[in-house]
């Protein structure tokens, strides 16, 4: 009788150790997956932002790829800061993220398009995409096929977890 009980005790002990190891490995896998998901979310939002008509450069609806219209970005930024319905609307797309354009040439300038930072977060992930920053107000030149000037910059998308 005692032997049977001892066998069971050893068996359950080994089972408990096995479960602990399994849970540890599964937990580590979950952390890695969540990191990957965060990176993917950043990329997804960056890609969405690049194809957003609210930001894209165009002339008579002919879209210029990888180009952010400075006037549109500024208009979008003021819309989001003044209109709570618009803020809520774009939250469904971007959720908790920060989207900004950093112009690096010929002058350095940065403007935030969308910002919704959570009160608390464990980590953040930034995605950088090189873009042309189109300034339609600059006179006397052309940018690609557009009337204005081309500047160079980066679209930065930060997502939080």
């Amino acid at each position: 009788m005692i032997e049977a009980v001892m066998v069971l005790v050893v068996f359950f002990f080994l089972l408990a150790v096995g479960l602990m190891v399994y849970n540890g490995l599964a937990g580590r896998g979950a952390v890695q997956r969540s990191q990957e998901a965060l990176e993917l979310r950043g990329l997804r939002i960056a890609r969405l932002a690049m194809t957003f008509p609210e930001l894209q450069c165009s002339v008579s609806n002919v879209i210029q790829e990888n180009c952010v219209d400075q006037l549109k970005a500024s208009a979008m930024s003021s819309l989001l800061s003044s209109d709570s319905r618009a803020r809520q609307y774009y939250y469904d797309t971007f959720q908790e993220a920060r989207i900004r354009v950093r112009q690096v040439y010929p002058t350095e300038e940065e403007f935030v398009i969308y910002e919704r930072e959570p009160a608390e977060y464990r980590r953040s992930e930034a995605t950088y995409l090189p873009v042309i920053v189109y300034d339609p107000l600059s006179s006397g030149g052309t940018c690609l096929t557009l009337h204005g000037a081309c500047h160079f910059g980066t679209l930065i998308v930060e997502v939080y977890q």
Binding site: A75, L79, Y90
Partner: peptide, 22 residues
């Protein structure tokens, strides 16, 4: 809803173009 918001962006853009146009 989207049309309303994007139109607000274009509206602001047209006003900015008008304000700075010489």
């Amino acid at each position: 809803d989207h049309l309303e918001h994007i139109t607000a962006v274009y509206y602001q853009r047209s006003r900015d173009l008008l304000a700075s146009y010489r």
